[in-house]
Amino acid sequence: MRIIFLTILAILSFSISAQTKMEKEYRVKQDKVPENAQKWIIQNFPEAKKVKWYQEISNGKTTFEAKLQWNKTPYSVEFDSVGTIEDVEMTIDFEEIELTTRKTIEQYFLGNYKKHKVLKVQKQFTGNLSQFRQYLENPNQTGITTNYEVEFQGITPESNELYEALFNQSGQLIQRKTIKTEANINLDF
């Protein structure tokens, strides 16, 4: 009986490990982060006290992410493996999106879903981010592209799903991904 159980377990473990995605994200200490990335944070967010660093390995690609708060707003800053800035995301309320952009995004929701609920909005900055702090103080600075990443629940007569959508500065949809929501067996049973 014990041998049968162990054999079943070994087969299950093998077949499951063969399907494992190579995606891992974990907390790292600051001294494990490329110096360029550390310098960027110090230059652009000198007042940020608690910066949490994470390393993500996805399909062989390594990135670093800093999570911090500045002016009571959560920021997430992503760097590549050598510490070059890739993008900055700032968590905001949906109502903080500029009015005409917000109206365009709302039109998208009304046109595509019977019901929707916005769960999280991040203003995403890409482009020339070397002087990001100056940009925050003077948003007229050129060279930075602003998009909005919106996490929402969308209900149609056929489906009820969570999505992550990226809208450009004028509120036009760039892309939409379905967020996989699996049951949490250890919370349910």
Partner: peptide, 22 residues
Amino acid sequence: FSLQIPLQGSSVDVGEFFLITS
């Protein structure tokens, strides 16, 4: 009422520890 708290990073990935309390 239950909580799952990742101990390494902001989500629980393969090879990582977490806490469950309820």
